[in-house]
Amino acid sequence: MSQRRVLFGASLGQWNGADVGNVPGVLEIAAAADRGGLDMFTIADHLYFGDKLDAYSAVGFLLGRTSTISGAVIVTNLPTRPAPALARTISSLSALSGGRVILGIGAGAIWDMIPQLGIPRLTPGAAVRAMEEAITLIRALCGGGEPVTFDGSFYQVTGLQPAPAPAPPIWTGSVHPKSLAVTGRTADGWVPSMGSDWLSARYRESRPLIDAAAVEAGRDPAGVASIFNFGGRITSEPLAQNRDDAGRWIGGSARQWIEEMTAAVLEHGAGGFIYRSTDDTPAPVAVASFAREIVPAVREAVGRP
């Protein structure tokens, strides 16, 4: 089992992004996560929603207001951000922040809305092939070296100079078998969709496909971390039931969170957690509690500070 550092983060909003009308709250969540020693803040990417903050504008601004935490778009809606431009964006953020950036990337969400931006619709298979080309090209355009010429089905560049900043960790939000195979072949991490955790059927059925593709590509499957969106409420007293009837985690006391997350790492190989509060507690307060009461104890329990 890999002994990589376990990562802990906080989400800046819901699945569909951070609200334009809640800028003070978004800023304070990021600040609380940074003060609390978390590893990352995350934000979703859906340019077709006018009431949501643009993900990369938000990440760049927040990296400038924080000191140690990394920023991640989970996940970049690739059809709306062409790979060569995305490579320049991510390498610039890396250079400006001292490497405090993670690239989450996906083949495209809500395809019924993407064409509203004037972007041609791709079939699911084509979108996955475009994602794999994009990951390959973005890596080539980071880290210096000789000019890059790439002649793919979806991306073509000729003699393009790579940026000197190295490529950041690349995570995907893959769902279906073909995109899961791309994750195994090319990515550093995987964020299961719909808040699925290590006990879910989605994880049990999907992770073996990633591992098999990694092995076939000559990679160590342990090199692809599983990073879970793990929302819930932190209660002052233990809950008699920590999961709902569908098996989804709903929360509990700090001790119950610690026990659950420690088991996830030691027994199921979890590589990280992205926290989102699901009750009426103000999100910055909940994030501060998560960082103060839960994360240090999990780090100590798993022996990976």
Rank of each mutant, 00 (worst) to 15 (best):
residue 186 T to A: 14
residue 194 M to K: 06
residue 153 S to H: 13
residue 195 G to T: 11
residue 105 I to P: 04
residue 282 P to K: 09
residue 136 T to N: 07
residue 100 R to Y: 02
residue 69 I to T: 01
residue 22 N to Y: 04
residue 181 A to I: 01
residue 98 G to A: 02
residue 276 R to Y: 01
residue 294 I to G: 08
residue 15 W to M: 10
residue 117 L to S: 11
residue 158 T to E: 15
residue 55 A to S: 14
residue 246 A to Q: 14
residue 149 T to D: 05
residue 122 L to S: 15
residue 120 P to H: 09
residue 253 S to G: 01
residue 189 G to L: 08
residue 259 E to Q: 14
residue 79 P to D: 12
residue 236 S to W: 01
residue 29 I to W: 08
residue 55 A to K: 04
residue 107 A to Y: 00
residue 149 T to W: 07
residue 28 E to L: 09
residue 147 P to W: 10
residue 296 P to V: 03
residue 4 R to L: 09
residue 93 L to S: 07
residue 105 I to R: 05
residue 258 I to L: 06
residue 12 L to Q: 04
residue 151 D to F: 04
residue 180 L to F: 00
residue 258 I to H: 04
residue 109 A to P: 00
residue 174 S to V: 05
residue 251 G to R: 01
residue 238 P to Y: 09
residue 182 V to T: 13
residue 79 P to V: 11
residue 78 L to H: 04
residue 50 G to P: 00
residue 229 N to V: 10
residue 143 G to D: 10
residue 222 A to P: 00
residue 305 P to C: 09
residue 257 W to I: 12
residue 161 Q to E: 14
residue 42 T to D: 02
residue 55 A to N: 07
residue 112 D to H: 14
residue 53 L to Y: 05
residue 119 I to R: 05
residue 69 I to L: 01
residue 241 Q to H: 09
residue 8 F to C: 05
residue 132 E to C: 10
residue 161 Q to T: 15
residue 163 A to S: 13
residue 276 R to N: 07
residue 274 I to P: 02
residue 230 F to L: 13
residue 139 R to L: 07
residue 161 Q to A: 15
residue 280 D to L: 12
residue 23 V to A: 13
residue 9 G to L: 02
residue 301 A to H: 04
residue 78 L to N: 08
residue 164 P to W: 06
residue 61 F to S: 13
residue 228 F to T: 09
residue 121 R to V: 07
residue 128 V to C: 06
residue 43 I to Q: 06
residue 128 V to K: 07
residue 234 I to E: 07
residue 12 L to H: 07
residue 91 S to H: 03
residue 20 V to D: 05
residue 49 F to R: 13
residue 215 V to G: 00
residue 135 I to T: 11
residue 283 A to D: 13
residue 148 V to L: 12
residue 201 A to T: 10
residue 45 D to V: 04
residue 229 N to S: 03
residue 35 R to W: 01
residue 160 L to K: 07
residue 70 S to H: 12
residue 13 G to L: 02
residue 155 Y to I: 04
residue 47 L to E: 13
residue 44 A to Y: 02
residue 46 H to N: 09
residue 191 V to H: 03
residue 290 F to E: 02
residue 128 V to Q: 11
residue 125 G to W: 12
residue 244 D to G: 03
residue 40 M to G: 00
residue 30 A to S: 02
residue 169 P to L: 14
residue 23 V to I: 14
residue 152 G to H: 10
residue 27 L to C: 14
residue 305 P to N: 06
residue 45 D to H: 10
residue 89 T to A: 11
residue 140 A to M: 14
residue 246 A to M: 12
residue 270 A to I: 03
residue 125 G to P: 00
residue 76 T to E: 04
residue 189 G to N: 04
residue 50 G to R: 14
residue 177 P to D: 15
residue 267 E to L: 09
residue 157 V to T: 15
residue 148 V to M: 10
residue 2 S to K: 07
residue 260 E to G: 00
residue 194 M to A: 15
residue 11 S to Y: 00
residue 102 I to F: 05
residue 183 T to S: 07
residue 43 I to E: 10
residue 304 R to K: 12
residue 150 F to P: 08
residue 55 A to I: 03
residue 49 F to H: 12
residue 147 P to E: 10
residue 93 L to I: 07
residue 205 E to R: 14
residue 207 R to N: 03
residue 283 A to I: 00
residue 52 K to D: 03
